[in-house]
Amino acid sequence: MANIFNKKIQLHGFNNLTKTLSFNIYDICYAQTSRQRQEYIEYIDEEYNAERLTNILTEVTKIIGANILNIARQDYDPQGASVAILIAEDKDDNIKILSNAEAPGPLPESLIGHLDKSHLTIHTYPESHPDNGISTFRADIDVSTCGRISPLRALNYLIHSFESDIVTMDYRVRGFTRSIDGGKHFIDHEINSIQNFIAEDTKDRYHMIDVNIYQENIFHTKMMLKNFDLDDYLFGGSSSDLSLGQQQEITDRVRKETLEIFYGRNIPDVDD
């Protein structure tokens, strides 16, 4: 199979395969008082405002070797932000390196891509629950490319740009490109799992599972942080300020929230 992808195929026209990476991150915390919950929302809005998100997506365009055509960004009231970037192929003849190999992509110091036209979007969703003290932050990122390069090359950088408790990723190759003899090619690079594009240090930190539909070129991976330290989840407080009973109660709430998001279903309480 690898020989098929490594062999150069002479195309009829432009490679018009569409490759889309949907990347979602979740941050979970416990904010005990209404004031702490409000401060958490304000912190997230400041930490991941439209300007910061624009900088992250700008670095993604560098990684895939693209030119930015247009940027639209917006901070929302009372919370959240959105950024959309329209990009096109970089015409710099010095960018010659191109690889879609199953390996972690670079961090932003390297330029290694090539594409014709595409877009990047990001939306944030901070929220809190008034009753149980759980607050969450979700960011939805889409990187869609048309041409030779895969947005999976930006995945390593995106993961390192956020401190995430849960990450879910969907990758799909759509359409087809045609060789000069008329044959259709529905994918132009080898992929067995999104996990193969993730760096080892990340794999060591997360539990990871796949749900892949190879015949449809659809790949799904989700990750959940392995280690749990209650102090990492307390906003505006410390576990030393809590009784053992309070620590256990909050730990149960945070872990339940984490599992529900990871598995995509509500988990009933023990006494329900």
Rank of each mutant, 00 (worst) to 15 (best):
M169N: 15
L234K: 04
I191L: 00
D188G: 00
D165W: 02
L230T: 04
D170E: 14
D140Y: 06
G182I: 05
K226M: 14
S161W: 05
G183Y: 09
T145G: 00
G147Y: 07
Q215D: 12
G175T: 07
F162L: 08
C146P: 01
D188T: 01
H189F: 14
I187N: 10
Y214D: 06
F228T: 05
H185F: 09
G183F: 10
F235V: 02
L234I: 03
V173F: 08
R174F: 01
F176V: 02
S179W: 01
H160K: 08
H160Q: 07
L234S: 07
A199S: 15
F186C: 03
F219H: 06
S193M: 02
R205C: 03
F235S: 01
F228I: 05
R178H: 09
F186T: 08
V167W: 15
D188I: 01
L225I: 14
D181T: 04
F176Q: 06
Q195N: 14
I149K: 03
I218R: 15
S161A: 15
I191S: 03
K222T: 10
D232A: 13
I159S: 11
G183N: 14
E216K: 10
E163N: 09
L234Q: 04
L234T: 03
Y206E: 12
H185N: 06
D170I: 02
M223Q: 12
S144T: 15
L225P: 02
V167P: 11
T177C: 09
T221F: 06
L234R: 03
L155Y: 01
K203R: 07
F219G: 04
K226A: 12
K203C: 02
H207A: 06
S150N: 05
E190K: 14
D181M: 03
M224F: 12
K184V: 08
Y206P: 14
T202D: 10
S193H: 04
S161Y: 01
M208W: 10
C146S: 14
I218K: 14
